[in-house]
Simulated scan of single mutants.
Amino acid sequence: MPPLTAREVYQQLRDAALDLRALTRLDEQPEPGLMHVDIEGWRLRLDVDGVHLRHCLGCRSADGRVFDGGERFGTDPVSLLSTWELAQIERLLATTVTS
């Protein structure tokens, strides 16, 4: 199975920013600054500094493909977000918590 590309992960974040897909912040907070979210079956590990989204550390798609931001040098999906999209995602991260 081919790994996920940064653009595929970005598309999920973009769709969440546009309210086309539901973003759910998961209750797993394994360490400060690390946040786990679900976007309709896509599980993302995000690096968050306070209220600011800094990086996507990894993602597993609904079909099991993986993007590993720690091993792959190149584009971070977060860097592909527009300023408006980034602000929308940060708003969603601050307001969507489930257990």
Results as ranks from 00 to 15, higher is better:
M35N: 05
Y10S: 01
R43W: 13
L81W: 02
L20T: 00
V9G: 00
L80C: 10
D76L: 07
G64H: 04
E90Q: 10
W84I: 09
T98V: 15
F73D: 15
V51I: 04
L20I: 08
D38C: 03
W42G: 06
L18Q: 13
R43S: 15
T98A: 15
A6H: 12
F67A: 03
P77F: 11
D68I: 02
P32K: 00
L18N: 11
V48D: 04
P30E: 09
E31D: 04
T98H: 11
A22I: 14
E8W: 00
Q11W: 08
Q12E: 11
A6N: 12
D49P: 00
G58F: 12
S79F: 05
E85K: 00
H55I: 06
R54V: 15
T95G: 03
V9Q: 02
V66K: 04
W42F: 14
E85D: 11
D76S: 07
T24C: 03
P30I: 06
G64S: 04
V78Y: 07
A87V: 03
H52D: 15
E31I: 08
R25A: 13
A16Y: 05
C56K: 04
M35T: 13
D15V: 02
G69R: 01
Y10T: 01
R7C: 05
L80E: 11
A22H: 08
T95S: 10
E90C: 05
D15M: 08
L93N: 06
P30G: 08
G33P: 02
R45Q: 14
D76T: 07
L86S: 12
R43L: 15
R21M: 14
Q29W: 11
P3T: 15
R25S: 13
R72C: 11
T95C: 05
R43P: 03
W84S: 10
F73V: 15
D47C: 09
P77N: 07
E8V: 00
D38A: 05
R43A: 15
R45T: 12
I89C: 05
L57T: 05
L86D: 09
E40Q: 08
Q88Y: 07
V48Q: 02
A62E: 14
L13D: 04
G33N: 03
L53A: 08
V66T: 08
A87L: 10
L4R: 00
V37K: 01
A87S: 13
T96H: 15
V48G: 02
L46W: 01
S61R: 01
V66Q: 10
D27T: 11
E40C: 08
P32V: 09
D19C: 04
V97Y: 15
V66H: 09
L46I: 02
A6P: 12
C56E: 09
L23S: 05
E8N: 00
Y10H: 09
I39W: 03
L57M: 13
